[in-house]
Design a protein around this nucleic acid. Structure first.
Lengths: 337, 337
DNA sequence: CGTTGCATTTAGATCGTTCTAAATCACAGG
DNA sequence: CCTGTGATTTAGAACGATCTAAATGCAACG
C-alpha cells in the first residue's frame, strides 16, 4: 500500500548522471548544463519525483515551514488573519503549521515544543493571555525566530504586526461624540492581553481628549451570550450611559440582543459600537458601526515580517502597525441633525 | 544566532550511555531499566533536548503531521470544522499543516505536492469545486492516505466524514410546511460540489414527500452581498414563493437584508431558512432558523477516521455521517396557531 | 565453574538530501 | 602535445534519528 518514495538516486540512475547533479537540478542551480537539466527534468516528471523536504532540512536547515499559533479559531478576526498569513506563505512556497492555544499558556508551550521538534523555520504567535513575559527571551535562546501579532508580550522584544488599537478606539469615541453621545461605557473582556490593555488605554485617552464622560467599564464573557447577559449590568451603571463601545463586534452583537430584550432599541435609545468590523457587523440588526482593523492585512504583514526575519536574522525588530478605519452603519445612531 | 540543536548523541555522551539507549527512552520503550531512564530523562531536561521529528520520519516513516485542505477560511463552517480537526490532532500529538485551496483545483494540486514533499502521514481534504474525479485514485497511487470531508469526489472511494445534508434539507422543508408555507424556493450557489448536489437533491425529495410546490431555484454568489442582490430575483419568481431555503446561513442573512430593503419583512412576509447554523444565525435580525450540521463534530470525525486509516491502511473505506438538527428561531415565521 | 536465559545495552547501517572538495571535460594558447 | 582555465560533474561525508542484530551483564542452575 505505502508506495516507496522515488529518490534522487533513482532519478540519477535513470538519467545517467550522479545524485549530486540531480540535486542541483532540483534546486535550480545555474551550474548545470542545459541539456543535462532538460534530461533530468524529463526523468523527474516521468517518475513523479517529489523532493523530500524533511531530508533536505536535515542537511541544510530550512524546512520551508512556519508555525502559526492563534488563541481561537471561532472568532473570525483570527481566521481572517490566518487567511492572510496562509496566502503569503503559499505564494512564498512555504507551508503553515497551524495550532490553537485556546488562550492557554501551557498548551501554547506544548505547541511550541512540537513546532521545534518539527523544525519550523519560524513562528507567528498571537500570545495566549497569561503568557510568561520571558517567552520571547526563551525563543531567542532556542534560536527560533518569532513574529508576534495582534497581541504582544514584552513590547519591542520581537517583530510585531498589529493594528493601532488606540487610534481605533479614538475614532469610535470621536464618532460617538460627534453624534451627540456624552456618557460612554466600555464593554470589555476578562482575558488580560495587550489588545485589551491598548483598547482600554485608548478609551481613557479618547475620553480625555473629547471631554466625554466615562460611564463605566463592564466585563463580559467573550461570547455573544455573555455580552447579552451584560446588558442588564450596563443599564444599571450609576451614570446611565447613552453609548457603549464594545471590545469587539461579537460582544456588540450580543449586547444589542440583550438590550432589545430589555426593551432598549440599540441605535436609537442607546448607541452601540463594535471594534474589528467582522463580516457579521453587516448582518446584525441594526447593522453595526465598527472600526475596521483589516485582520487579513495584518496577517499579510506578519508573514512578510517573518520572511524578512528569516532572510536576515540579525535585523533589528520591526513593527508593522496598520491604521484602523471607521465604518459607520446604524447602531451608533442617526447622523447628527 | 541560530542555536545548534541538542542531539541524541550529546545526551548520550553526557548521560554515559549510547545513542540507541537514549532513543529508546525518547520513545518510552519498556526495554530500558528504570535507573537508566531516570538518568537520561534528567539529562534531556537539563540540556533542553527536543527530538527532531523530521529526522525520525526519515527513518521510520511517520511524521506525525497531517495536511488539511479547505476551500475557504472565511466561512466559519470551515473554521469550526478545522477547529475540530485541530483539537483531535493536538490530543493525538499530531500537527496540522493547513492550506486553503480557494476552491481552485490547480492550487489544490500544488498544495498536495507540497504536502507530499513534507512527508505528511495523511490528508483531510474538502475537495475544491471542479476537482479531477480521479484525484482519489492518484492519491492512492501516491500511497497518500486521505479522508474526504464535507464534500466528496467519487463517492465511497475513500473514507468520508460529513453531515446528512439530504436529511437536513428535509427537516427544513418539513418545518416550513408545518408552519403553513407551500411555495418554497431554494437559494443556491454556483460552485459545483457534492454538498450542493446533495442539498438540491434533498430539496427535490423533500418537496415530493411533503407535497409543497417548487417555487424555483435561484443561484447567488457565495457572499451575503450576492444573496442580498438575489432578493429581487427571488421575488420575481413566477410562482411567488412564501418561503426560501438557502444553501447556507451566510446567504440567508444576506437574503434577509435584501428582502427588507425591498420592503418585505423576513419571517412575516417571507419565511427564510438557512443551513449550517453558523454562530451568526443567532445574531441576524430576525434570528435565523437553520439546520445545525455540527461542523466541529464533523472535523472530529474526520480526524478520527484518518487516525484509524493510518493505523490500518488496508481497512475498507468508512463513512461517518452526522445527523442534522433543526434549530427554530424567528426567520421561519410564527409558530403555527 | 561453564551454561543458559533474561534483561538491558549497543555498534553500525540506513533514511534522502545537501555540502565540500575534488575530479573531469573541453578547448584555447604556447 | 602539454598546460591552464572555466564550466560541469561527482564521490563521499554529513544531518539526527531509528532499526537490526548482536553483545553484554547478571543470576541461577546443573
Amino acid at each position: 500500500m505505502q508506495r516507496k518514495r522515488v529518490t534522487l538516486d533513482e532519478v540519477a540512475r535513470i538519467a545517467g548522471v550522479s545524485r549530486a547533479t540531480v540535486s542541483l537540478v532540483v534546486r535550480k542551480s545555474p551550474l548545470v548544463a542545459d541539456h543535462t537539466r532538460e534530461k533530468v527534468e524529463q526523468v523527474m516528471a516521468e517518475l513523479d519525483y517529489v523532493r523530500d523536504i524533511g531530508a533536505a532540512r536535515l542537511r541544510n536547515n530550512s524546512s520551508r515551514t512556519v508555525g502559526v499559533i492563534v488563541p481561537n479559531l471561532v472568532n473570525s478576526f483570527f481566521t481572517e488573519f490566518l487567511a492572510g498569513v496562509e496566502r503569503v506563505m503559499g505564494e512564498d512556497d512555504r507551508v503553515v503549521l497551524l495550532a490553537n492555544s485556546q488562550d492557554d499558556p501551557r498548551r501554547q508551550d506544548d505547541i511550541l515544543q512540537r513546532f521545534r521538534g518539527h523544525g519550523v523555520d519560524g513562528v507567528i504567535l498571537c500570545p495566549a493571555a497569561g503568557t510568561d513575559p520571558d517567552l520571547p527571551g526563551r525563543m531567542r535562546r532556542w534560536g527560533l525566530p518569532v513574529v508576534q501579532s495582534l497581541r504582544e508580550i514584552g513590547r519591542g522584544a520581537t517583530d510585531y504586526a498589529g493594528a493601532d488599537y488606540i487610534d481605533g478606539v479614538r475614532l469610535a469615541v470621536q464618532h460617538l461624540v460627534r453624534l451627540g453621545r456624552r456618557r460612554i461605557a466600555f464593554l470589555s473582556v476578562g482575558a488580560r492581553t495587550s489588545a485589551r490593555e491598548e483598547r482600554l488605554a485608548g478609551f481613557a485617552r479618547a475620553l480625555a481628549e473629547t471631554g466625554a464622560k466615562d460611564a463605566g467599564i463592564v466585563e463580559a464573557d467573550l461570547s455573544w451570550e455573555g455580552a447579552a447577559h451584560s446588558a442588564a449590568e450596563v443599564l444599571a451603571l450609576p451614570s446611565r450611559p447613552d453609548a457603549v463601545l464594545c471590545f469587539n463586534d461579537i460582544l456588540a452583537a450580543g449586547l444589542m440582543r440583550g438590550l432589545r430584550r430589555a426593551g432598549i432599541e440599540p441605535g436609537r435609545d442607546m448607541a452601540v459600537m463594535g471594534l474589528d468590523d467582522l463580516p457579521l457587523a453587516e448582518l446584525t440588526y441594526p447593522p453595526l458601526s465598527s472600526i475596521a482593523m483589516d485582520p487579513a492585512g495584518i496577517g499579510v504583514a506578519a508573514a512578510r515580517l517573518l520572511a524578512r526575519r528569516l532572510a536576515d536574522p540579525a535585523a533589528p525588530p520591526e513593527r508593522s502597525i496598520l491604521a484602523p478605519r471607521l465604518v459607520i452603519r446604524e447602531s451608533s445612531g442617526a447622523e447628527a441633525g
